[in-house]
């Protein structure tokens, strides 16, 4: 309940107002609801299907970036949003699924022959589809039962697939546009820096094996 939100100081610093996770889902679905509402009412511009399709994909990428930002935020700025990561990750998956559904139903009109040709022949669609497939096991195992069943280490290893998904999503966006416009490059740069941060940190950690646990 929003009314019960309290400020908490966790093990990792900073007082963050604690909001119920359901609120993350409610706020997270606002863009989808607004887009569908505007779309049905013919207010998405001249090419509403394309606008809806692209916006849903972009939101999936934004939520993906948000999940990747949680660890650096904690490590660098001492802001702990870990308890919302699952909700944000699942929102990424839901938006990716809506994006794919829009492509299959509204864009291609269930023309599975055309869709198959796209998957086989068009690298950006091959990559997009692969990215969705990579995201699926992450979504399926995003619950406490799965963590218990798989054990924390196996679960964590599976969830490292998110790095592959992030690269796939950024590439998918870069490849769909003509020339090199700024927007997909900015998203690719954000993904690259979030992954690069982890890479550099792992190198540093490896070179200092005796580093005291925080």
């Amino acid at each position: 309940m929003a009314g019960q939100a309290t400020a908490q100081r966790g093990k990792h610093g900073f007082a963050m107002p604690r909001v119920p996770k359901i609120l993350i889902y409610i706020v997270g679905f606002v863009p989808a609801v607004v887009l569908f509402y505007l779309g049905v009412n013919d207010q998405l511009g001249a090419d509403p299907m394309r606008y809806l399709e692209q916006s849903l994909g972009l939101w999936a990428l934004r939520f993906l970036i948000a999940t990747l930002a949680i660890t650096p935020l904690r490590q660098i700025l001492n802001i702990n949003l870990l308890r919302y990561r699952r909700a944000i990750g699942l929102l990424c998956f839901y938006y990716a699924a809506l994006h794919l559904l829009t492509y299959v139903v509204l864009d291609q009109g269930f023309d599975f022959e055309a869709i198959w040709t796209d998957i086989v022949k068009r690298p950006y669609i091959t990559i997009g589809m692969a990215t969705f497939i990579v995201l699926t096991p992450l979504a399926v195992t995003s619950n406490n039962a799965a963590i218990r069943r798989l054990g924390g280490q196996v679960w964590a290893r599976i969830h490292r697939l998110v790095y592959i998904a992030a690269i796939g999503a950024a590439l998918h966006f870069l490849l769909v546009v003509k020339s090199w416009p700024p927007e997909p490059m900015v998203y690719a740069a954000i993904v690259a820096s979030l992954l690069g941060y982890r890479f550099v940190r792992s190198l540093v950690k490896r070179s200092m094996p005796k580093r005291r646990a925080a």
Binding site: G39, A46, P48, M49, L106, D111, K121, Y124
Partner: peptide, 23 residues
């Protein structure tokens, strides 16, 4: 002759069908 990154077999007519545009 496809564009290397997408098909040119069909097209969407702008202003036709809104969200439910048919190729």
């Amino acid at each position: 002759v496809d564009h290397p990154r997408w098909s040119q077999k069909t097209e969407r007519r702008i202003g036709e069908g809104g969200l439910f545009v048919k190729r």
